[in-house]
C-alpha cells in the first residue's frame, strides 16, 4: 500500500514536471519502486530485470538522449482534454476488468492449472535446474526466448542504423577543413 501510494505520487510528479532531467530521475525512482512491488509479489526475476533495465539502463540512455536535446519540455499547443478523456476512459475499463480477475494467490485459477504444475513437477527431473523460471525460459519455452533475443537484436540494429547513418551523410565542418 505504501509502495503504491508512492508510485501514484511519483506519477503525479512526472506529469506536472516540466524539467525533463527531473522527469528522467523520477522515472528511475518509479522503476525501483516497481521492482520493490515485484519483490513483494515474490517475482524476484522480474524485480531484478526491472531494477537493472528500467532503473539502470533506460535512465542512462534517457540522460544520453537528453544530452542531445533540450532539457525543458515544450509547452503543448493543443488542449489536454481529449488525451485526458482517453486516459480516464482506458483507466476505468482496466479497473472494471480487474473485478473479474481471481483474487491474488488462489491456486485453482486457469493460469495456475494449465501447464504450470507440469513445469513445477518436472523441472528438476528433466533439466536438474531448481530455478523454474530459468528452465521454462530457456528449455521449455526456448523458441520464445530465441524470439526475444532476436527482438533485442533487431531493435539494437535499428537504433544503431538511425543513430549512425545520419552522421556519415553530413560531414562536419572539421572534416572538410582537413580535406582542403
Amino acid at each position: 500500500m505504501v509502495l503504491l501510494t508512492l508510485l501514484a505520487a511519483i506519477t503525479v510528479g512526472i506529469v506536472r514536471m516540466r524539467n525533463l532531467f527531473a522527469v528522467v530521475v523520477l522515472g528511475g525512482i518509479y522503476s525501483f519502486l516497481m521492482a520493490s512491488v515485484m519483490i513483494v509479489l515474490d517475482a524476484v526475476d522480474v524485480a531484478m530485470t526491472e531494477a537493472s533495465v528500467g532503473a539502470g539502463i533506460s535512465t542512462v540512455l534517457m540522460l544520453a538522449a537528453l544530452h542531445l536535446t533540450k532539457t525543458e519540455e515544450a509547452v503543448p499547443t493543443h488542449t489536454p482534454l481529449l488525451p485526458l478523456f482517453v486516459a480516464v476512459a482506458t483507466g476505468i475499463v482496466l479497473v472494471f476488468g480487474t473485478f473479474a480477475l481471481p483474487s491474488f494467490g488462489v491456486a485453482e485459477t486457469p493460469m495456475n492449472m494449465h501447464v504450470a504444475p507440469y513445469y513445477l513437477q518436472n523441472s528438476i527431473p528433466d533439466t536438474s535446474v531448481p530455478n523454474v523460471v530459468t528452465s521454462v525460459l530457456s528449455s521449455y519455452r526456448g523458441f520464445d526466448t530465441l524470439g526475444e533475443t532476436t527482438v533485442i537484436f533487431t531493435a539494437g540494429i535499428a537504433v544503431l542504423m538511425l543513430l549512425k547513418g545520419k552522421r556519415e551523410l553530413k560531414p562536419g565542418p572539421k572534416r572538410r577543413r582537413i580535406r582542403r
Partner: peptide, 27 residues
C-alpha cells in the same frame, strides 16, 4: 538440458550486453 540452458543463456548475455553498450556508444 542443463548444458543447453547454460549455452543459450550465454547467447542471450552476449546479445543483450552488446546491444546496450552499442546503443550507449552511438548515443
Amino acid at each position: 538440458q542443463h548444458i543447453g540452458i547454460l549455452l543459450v543463456e550465454i547467447g542471450v548475455l552476449v546479445t543483450v550486453a552488446g546491444t546496450m553498450v552499442a546503443i550507449f556508444y552511438s548515443f
